[in-house]
Amino acid sequence: MTTLTFPLSRIEGHAQVVIETRDGEVHSAHFKAMELRGFEYFLQGTPAEEMPVIVPRICGVCSTAHHLAAVGALEDAYQVTPPPLATKIRELMYLGQLIQNQATSLFVFTLPDRLGLTSIFEHAADAHSEEVRAKIAGRALGVRRAGTDLITLAGGQFIHPIKAVVGGVTSGITPEAAAEMRTQLEGVLPLACELYDHYWEASLAMGERLGTWGDDSPAYYVAAIGGRRDNYYSDVIRVMSPDGVICDSFHPRDFRHYLTFEDTDYSYAGRTSYKGELIRANSLARVNMGEPAGTVYTDHYLRRFRETFGRPAHAIMLFDLARGVELVYSLERALAILEEPLDNEDMAP
């Protein structure tokens, strides 16, 4: 028996693919992600207000999601509703995270595969490729930075946010700071569109080279978007069936009645299903389920995605292309929210 181990890169955390072969035939293949730090255990006994600022350390890429999920869970436990202004600022935090995450995922993690490079920082062999790479790398990091700066503005700290607390947020956003952020995002939006267009073309070429967009088994889709593509910070979770119909919706605290978790012998992550069926979340789910946002570039890209791949689209390599739509949406939505007053006195309802 021969065992081949492939460490994975351009991923957060440590993972590997381990393939066992015997006499030239694949005997087994496993994806292994092995990192246990014990958050579920050492958090027990921690003062409640500290949880939202410890759990961002679960992941430095999606820290904001952990921060806001923790605060949301505590508010549900305490039966506290934050004021509308706080909800708006928290949505801005999420949008900052989405801009940063999708830009990182698209242009740092997955673009190298499309360009045939080991990274966007690797200097290319010929002058022309090097020029292309340098331009992409610089712009990609600039788009990423806009996301980080928005997280900092709305969330306080630039990687592990601190501003959301039980009952609201610790401070608002001044008109001057909001205007400055708007200018930065306005500058970055055309760059993001340009990079996404480049990414789209390169991905289509890669799709053609590979002859497939990956596993396209029909799946259910699960996302916390409020019906329209209006609000990522929603407390309604919706389910879409494989043939594209919104078939269910529930509040997060009732998840046990809709989603089932089971341990498996092929993955430490186990298996979560909806009525025993395969489910997918994340960007492809949201792009399948969302309605046009009413903003120029998002709707253009959403239409292009659906005309090219249908609705719902199932192939898993389309997650990356869906992230591009979300990157543009997050920029446009953040620009809209930043037009509104974000630092007025707001009393709890």
Binding site: E12, G13, P56, R57, I58, C59, G60, V61, S63, T104, V108, L141, R144, R145, T148, F158, I159, H160
Partner: peptide, 10 residues
Amino acid sequence: CSGCEMALLN
């Protein structure tokens, strides 16, 4: 958690 790496990318 890769937070330090993300800061370096910034």
